[in-house]
Amino acid sequence: MREAAVAAQPLAQPLFRPRLWLTRHLPVMAATAAVLAALGPYGTFQDLTLPGRLAYWGGMMLFGFLAYQGVMALGILAAGRIGAHRGRAVPWPAVVVPVTLVVNALITAAVAVVETRLGRGGFGAVGGLATLYVYCLIVTAVVTVLPLRAELLSRGTLTPPAPVPSPEPAVPTGEPRFLDRIPPRLGRRLLALEMEDHYLRIHTAAGSDLILMRLRDAVAELDGFPGQRVHRSFWVARDAVTGVERRADGKLTLVLSNGMKVPVSRTHAPAVRAAGWV
C-alpha cells in the first residue's frame, strides 16, 4: 500500500480523548476566543460589548469544536466500515473533505441563527446562506483540515504518500517470503512487526512503515526467521532484543536496538523465557 489511507476498521485508540481536549484544545480555544473578542472582527467590536464578544466568539468556537469532534468520529468509523467492506483502505482525503464540508454546514447554520437573533444580518434567503457558507468554509478548512490530518497521523492510521520504489532483486531462495514485502528504503534488518487494525507496521533499523496485511499471515511467511510472537499485537526478531525490563506487576517489556519497547503478554511470556530471551 503506497497511498495515504485510513485503516479499514475502527481504530484501536478511543475516538474521544477528553484529557487531550482539556490539556491542549480548550486552552487554545480560550486564548483564541479572547484575542477575537479583543479585536472584534466582522463588526462585533461595534455591535457587542466585551462580555458579549467573549460569549459570541467563545460559544462559536466551542460549538465548532464539538461539531468537529462528533463529525470526525463518524467519518473515521464510516471510513473503517467502507474500507473493511471493500477490502482495501480508504484514502485520507475521502475522510477529510466530507468531514470539513459537514462541519462547515453546521457552523454556517449556527452563525446564521446567532446573527439573525442579534439582528446583524438576514440569512433567510438561499443566496445569503450560500454566501455565508463560503465565508465560513474558508475559516473551517483552515482550522479543520490540518488538525484532522494530524489526528489521523497521531493514531498511526495515516502514512504519507511515497514514490513507487524501483524494483529490487528478488530475495535469494531460502529467505522468508515476507522480506520481499519490506519497502526497499527500510533495508533488510527486520526488528519487529506491530499490528495496527488491518495494517502491519514494519520496524527495521532504518525506520518503519505500514503495509496492508495481518500479523498472523506475516508470521507464517517468516517461518524459519529467528524471532517469535511476544504479544497478540507484536512479533520481535531475536537479534533486535538488547534488554528486558520487568514492571511492578511482573510483566516483561523487551527493549529493542532502536529504543523501541515491546510488551510481553502473559500468554507469550513462558515461550519468551524458554527461548532464553530473559
Rank of each mutant, 00 (worst) to 15 (best):
Ala12Asn: 04
Phe16Arg: 09
Arg17Glu: 15
Leu20Trp: 13
Arg24Pro: 06
His25Arg: 13
Thr32Ala: 05
Val35Ile: 10
Leu36Gln: 02
Leu39Asp: 10
Leu39Asn: 03
Gly40Val: 11
Tyr42Pro: 04
Trp57Cys: 02
Met61His: 02
Ala67Gln: 12
Val71Phe: 08
Ala79His: 06
Ile82Lys: 06
Ala84Trp: 08
Ala84Asn: 15
His85Asn: 06
Arg88Ser: 00
Pro93Phe: 11
Val96Arg: 05
Ala112Val: 14
Ala112Ile: 11
Val113Ala: 14
Glu115Gly: 10
Gly119Leu: 11
Gly121Val: 10
Leu132Asp: 14
Thr140Asp: 13
Thr144Glu: 02
Thr144Leu: 03
Leu153Tyr: 09
Ser154Leu: 08
Gly156Phe: 09
Leu158Gly: 01
Ala162Tyr: 02
Pro163Tyr: 12
Pro165Ala: 12
Glu168Phe: 12
Thr173Trp: 03
Gly174His: 01
Leu179Thr: 13
Pro184Glu: 15
Gly187Phe: 10
Leu191Glu: 15
Leu191Asp: 11
Leu191Arg: 14
Leu193Glu: 00
Leu200Glu: 02
Arg201Val: 08
Ile211Glu: 06
Leu222Glu: 00
Phe225Trp: 09
Phe234Met: 06
Asp239Leu: 05
Ala240His: 09
Glu245Tyr: 05
Arg247Met: 11
Gly250His: 09
Leu252Trp: 05
Leu254Asn: 08
Met260Ala: 01
Lys261Glu: 09
Val264Ile: 05
Val264Arg: 10
Gly276Asn: 03
